[in-house]
Simulated assay, not measured.
Amino acid sequence: MRELLKKHRELLRFAVVGGISFVITMSVNYGLKFTVLRTHPVTALIVGVLVATIFSYVANREWSFRTRGGRERAHEAALFFLISGVALGLNALPQWFSRYVLDLQAPRLSPFGVEVADFVSGIVIGTLLGTVFRWWAFKRWVFPEEDARVVEVADDPDIQDRKAA
């Protein structure tokens, strides 16, 4: 089990950052949706995802992919936010489809039904689509090279484990 965790450490860290980003997204989304953006639920979701994306860049760069790189920082950041923008569209698309194509909103549904439809389409399906795309795209374009950034051996258990093996 330990070897499996070591082998997939990067993915596990990405998942932890994603989990925290998910909580940020939900908190901002519902905070806005039930206050100032009551009539704009897709906008509330987009703002939540944007706030979480800023956190995600810092956390992924400095923790999840801390030894990966291969690009100048400005180029890396531009690619990260471009890919995150595409992922934001993928994240919002299911909720938009649910609301405006399937018309799963009031008066056709009760307020509880609307919340369930929004949660399943925007939070569950949208987050899943965006996360899978981000994992693939970040490794392919944003942080393409393994061991590209210098990290002190004493500070990084990943490098300590590789040197010990």
Rank of each mutant, 00 (worst) to 15 (best):
A117R: 01
F143S: 08
H75W: 00
L129Q: 12
E145W: 01
S98T: 07
D103V: 12
L90Q: 06
V153I: 11
S84I: 10
I54H: 13
W141E: 00
E62L: 03
V51G: 06
S64C: 07
E62N: 07
Y100I: 00
V116I: 13
A52N: 11
G113D: 04
Y100W: 11
G69Q: 04
R73P: 10
G48E: 08
L90C: 08
P111R: 01
V151Y: 02
T53Q: 07
H75L: 09
F65K: 10
G89Y: 11
W136V: 06
G126K: 05
N60A: 10
S56E: 10
R134Q: 14
E115A: 13
G126E: 12
T127A: 13
V58C: 06
V49N: 12
H75G: 05
A154V: 08
L93F: 15
A106C: 04
W96V: 06
F80D: 07
S121Q: 14
G70L: 02
F119Y: 06
T67Q: 05
G126W: 11
S98H: 08
D156S: 15
R99C: 06
E145F: 01
E115Y: 12
R71M: 07
S110P: 08
G85V: 07
L109T: 03
A52H: 05
F80A: 13
L104N: 01
G113C: 06
R68V: 01
W135A: 11
H75P: 00
V151S: 10
F97H: 09
R134S: 14
H75F: 00
V150G: 09
S121A: 15
I125V: 15
L102D: 10
R71N: 15
W141K: 00
V116R: 04
R73C: 08
A87T: 09
Q105Y: 02
A78D: 00
P157Q: 08
V86W: 14
S84H: 10
